[in-house]
């Protein structure tokens, strides 16, 4: 046994270091995952879409876009200025949402969009949106925020109505940042 003691100890140290490195690797997967998503363009909810290459407006078709708004544990009043609009695919559309902070202190929030039907999301090109950055509202502040979008004419024919729904979440840690993108795990660093 003792003949092996030194060898054993050396191997023990190496294997322990491997285990610790793998623990760190688990955390390293987080920025790695972010990078993969960024490079491959998966899951880029917070980035403006590129302008539609086909600017041809499909006059033969009408699509109804409904707007919805929610807040999640946030003392804000949040509503769209229009309940719905009828648009042609390919047409550039401007709409606006209103948001008001009802509390006596500044709060930062982040809006996350979702679409119904889910399928419509990939045909919904947002060129400008308040959801691309965190919004900080001072106490009692009211703000009108724009959304500019184009419906891709490739939208499947059976989709006649799209619901665009935003949910405002309070940004954990209440830190305010001018940066547009909000990296995952930002608050852990």
């Amino acid at each position: 046994m003792s003949a092996h003691a030194a060898d054993n100890r050396r191997l023990l140290v190496r294997l322990t270091i491997s285990a610790v490195v793998m623990f760190a690797f688990g955390f390293a997967l987080v920025p790695f995952y972010e990078k993969i998503c960024e490079v491959t363009g998966i899951n880029d909810l917070l980035k403006p879409d590129t302008a539609a290459t086909n600017t041809q407006v499909d006059e033969s078709r009408w699509v109804t876009v409904q707007f919805d708004s929610n807040v999640h544990d946030l003392p804000w009043r949040f509503r769209p200025q229009q309940a719905a609009v009828r648009v042609h695919p390919g047409e550039l559309v401007h709409v606006a949402y209103e948001v008001a902070n009802t509390r006596a202190y500044a709060v930062a929030g982040q809006a996350v969009p979702s679409y119904g039907p889910q399928l419509a999301g990939q045909y919904f090109r947002k060129l400008d949106c308040f959801c691309f950055s965190q919004q900080t509202l001072e106490a009692g502040e009211t703000r009108t925020m724009p959304v500019v979008f184009v419906i891709d004419p490739g939208l499947p024919a059976e989709v006649n109505t799209i619901t665009l729904s935003y949910t405002f979440f309070e940004v954990a840690g209440r830190r305010t940042s001018a940066a547009g993108r909000l990296p995952a795990g930002a608050d852990s660093t």
Binding site: C37, V112, F169, A172, G173, G185, D187, S188
Partner: peptide, 12 residues
């Protein structure tokens, strides 16, 4: 208060 998996905080 981290947001590794919390979508509201930018996680996934």
């Amino acid at each position: 208060g981290t947001s590794f998996f919390n979508a509201a905080g930018g996680g996934d």
